[in-house]
């Protein structure tokens, strides 16, 4: 049986539904991210696991124990907040040891655990510092250590990196994953940053308007999106309008595009051919080809983003940078190609 289970959970605020029919089973030691735009219900779901919100309907259990109606302080769940939430009147050591003191753990054991966690977050000499003496990244590390000190059954992180600058965010992201793997702790991570979710998670739950759109490993979410929302929210996506010819062919303007994924829509139906920018190549190919005019070429370091106009429609191609890459000129007519297995078809809106 799964370690953390959310069974048909729903949350209503007044007349509006924040989370609808949420079902999830998380295995022990698994790292799951809730990904979605603002207002999609990901934080509300996390807060229901933490006990700060009560589900209107449904049941939540951890390790087989029903915690749906348990108070937050009875759940043994560690929480890390976006705003760090360190107690300003306490030193780093006192912050980390706060939960242990409440559990009446002995002074020596508390000190030993605090030292162990400060080592884990690479801040062994900061025990006597106050939160206001630390940088944002350091404060968030302390918040993580504090949440882990009580040996929680589940670790909850609510957009913990949002308030940090890009470099610190990348470093701390790696740290969080390292610590999670070291302790093998079941973790739920809320973010609106898809790169963060992809990089950290064993599985990603994509949410929109309170509903789970898709659950799966990052590779599956990115490459095999099940809904239009997931396809467009996760990563960049080209949507080329066309009409179904048969179960493998779509007519897009003057060109015919092939896909290996069977098309469910009947012939004559208006559809969109979906293809990721990194699947496109400039130049003639063996399978699908489109013709367009280069609108812009942006050098982004590891990739070069080329925008190609096909009439009113714009197609983006991300080319991997290499020293011998020949970049097209703006206003140059080019042929774009991609293999049949790289695209799939969805019914037009």
């Amino acid at each position: 049986m799964a370690f953390l289970v959310l069974d048909r959970v729903r949350k209503e605020f007044g007349g509006s539904t924040a989370v609808e029919d949420f079902n999830l089973a998380v295995e022990a030691g698994e790292f799951v991210s809730f990904l979605g735009p603002s207002g999609c219900g990901k934080t509300t779901t996390l807060r229901m696991i933490a006990g700060f919100e009560k589900p209107s309907v449904g049941r939540i259990s951890i390790g087989g124990r029903d915690i749906t109606n348990a108070r937050p302080n009875e759940r043994n769940v560690g929480m890390v907040f976006q705003s760090y939430a360190l107690f300003p009147n306490m030193t780093v050591g006192q912050n980390v040891g706060f939960g242990l003191k409440l559990k009446k753990v002995g002074r020596e054991e508390t000190q030993s655990r605090v030292n162990e966690l400060l080592e884990l977050i690479h801040m062994p000499d900061k025990g006597d510092s106050y939160p206001h003496e630390l940088s944002g990244g350091q404060q968030q590390r302390v918040a993580l250590a504090r949440a882990l000190a009580i040996r929680p059954q589940v670790l909850l992180l609510d957009e913990p990196l949002s308030a940090l600058d890009a470099k610190i965010r990348d470093e701390l992201r790696i740290e969080i994953r390292r610590i999670q793997r070291t302790l093998d702790i079941t973790t739920i991570y809320v973010t609106h940053d898809q790169e963060e979710a992809m990089a950290l998670s064993d599985r990603v739950v994509v949410m929109s308007r309170g509903v789970m759109e898709q659950v799966g490993p990052p590779f599956q979410i990115y490459n095999y999106p099940e809904t239009r929302f997931v396809a467009s929210f996760v990563g960049k996506l080209n949507q080329i309008p066309g009409v179904v010819i048969d179960s493998k062919t779509v007519q897009c303007g003057d060109e015919r595009l092939q896909t290996t994924t069977p098309i469910e829509e009947s012939p004559g139906t208006a559809v969109n051919v979906m293809v990721r920018p990194e699947e496109l190549d400039i130049g003639a190919g063996e399978e699908n080809q489109l013709v367009g005019v280069v609108e812009s070429v942006n050098f982004l370091g590891a990739i070069v983003r080329v925008r190609i106009a096909r009439g009113e429609q714009m197609i983006t191609a991300d080319l991997f940078n290499e020293r011998l890459l020949e970049l097209p000129e703006v206003e140059e007519a080019v042929t774009i190609s991609f293999p049949a297995h790289a695209c799939w078809v969805m019914k037009a809106n």
Binding site: F52, N73, F98, I150
Partner: peptide
């Protein structure tokens, strides 16, 4: 001047009761 809600929730998640 302090983030009352988050500090309260942080303390709660660490096992603190209201008086604490």
């Amino acid at each position: 001047a302090i983030n009352v809600r988050t500090l309260t929730e942080a303390a709660q998640s660490l096992g603190a009761t209201w008086p604490t």
